[in-house]
């Protein structure tokens, strides 16, 4: 029970319900967990309803998708090893936001992308994905270093956590393509289910969706 369902002062955030923290850090039995929690600050302007999608992503407008791909590329750039975009992290985030499992994220994630674009326009008169990598890194750092309770910092953490899930999680969710994330950290899975067929089809996002809807009729 290591690592665990334990709270540590000065390590774990003491999240304050009244401040509407949306990422709750919890450590959990057995190596722990950051469980994604509660609600984002709604200081970001709402994006207009998405136009008909022309690409495979479902949770974002095409504009937001370009911003997301560029942001993931700065968090986990390709170098001598594969990066987040190689691993399909944007696809993971897109799919995760359609499972119904993270309603607050669905409501708030696009708002953060729009805020990132607005900041890019203000500082560099360009959209985020059109900025140079140095400019993009500067913008990402501004969001990261914003006061911990700000919408910027919370959105950054949401992006970071989802990106690491998509980079290092089970490939059936759409990320970690070719297990490139696992290769980077040297994680050798012993099989999804030791007794089962390691090649058996498994779809984590479907399982998550069933957890959300109860798995009954009409699920």
């Amino acid at each position: 029970m290591t690592g665990t369902c334990a709270r540590l002062r000065g390590v774990t955030d003491d999240d304050d319900f009244s401040r509407r923290v949306f990422v709750q850090r919890l450590s959990f039995f057995g190596g722990g967990v950051v469980l994604l929690g509660a609600a984002c600050k709604k200081e970001e302007a709402k994006v207009s309803p998405p136009p008909a999608l022309t690409t495979s992503h479902r949770s974002f407008t095409n504009e937001a998708w370009l911003t997301l791909v560029a942001a993931v590329d700065r968090l986990l750039p390709r170098d001598e090893d594969a990066g987040g975009v190689d691993a399909g992290v944007p696809e993971y985030i897109d799919r995760m936001l359609t499972t119904g499992n993270l309603p607050h994220f669905e409501r708030n994630f696009s708002g953060g992308l729009a805020a990132l674009d607005r900041r890019a326009e203000r500082m560099f008169q360009k959209r985020f994905h059109e900025a140079t990598t140095e400019q993009q890194d500067e913008l990402m750092a501004i969001f990261k270093d914003s006061p911990p309770t700000s919408g910027e910092a919370r959105w950054y953490e949401m992006l970071l956590v989802l990106s690491l899930e998509g980079f290092l999680g089970d490939p059936s969710y759409g990320g970690n393509k070719g297990e490139v994330g696992w290769k980077l950290v040297g994680f050798n899975l012993v099989g999804r289910n030791v007794k089962g067929d390691p090649q058996a089809p498994y779809d984590g996002s479907k399982t998550l969706h069933h957890l959300h809807c109860g798995g009954g009729k009409g699920c």
Binding site: R74, P77, K144, G181, V185
Partner: peptide, 29 residues
């Protein structure tokens, strides 16, 4: 340490001004 790579990576990335991303994060991974 439990071999849970996502949990480990979130810890390695850190938070706020101590937080890292980009090549620095990949080096740590």
């Amino acid at each position: 340490q439990h071999p849970n790579p996502i949990f480990a990576a979130v810890g390695l990335a850190g938070k706020g001004e101590k937080g890292i991303f980009g090549k620095a994060l990949k080096d740590r991974l």
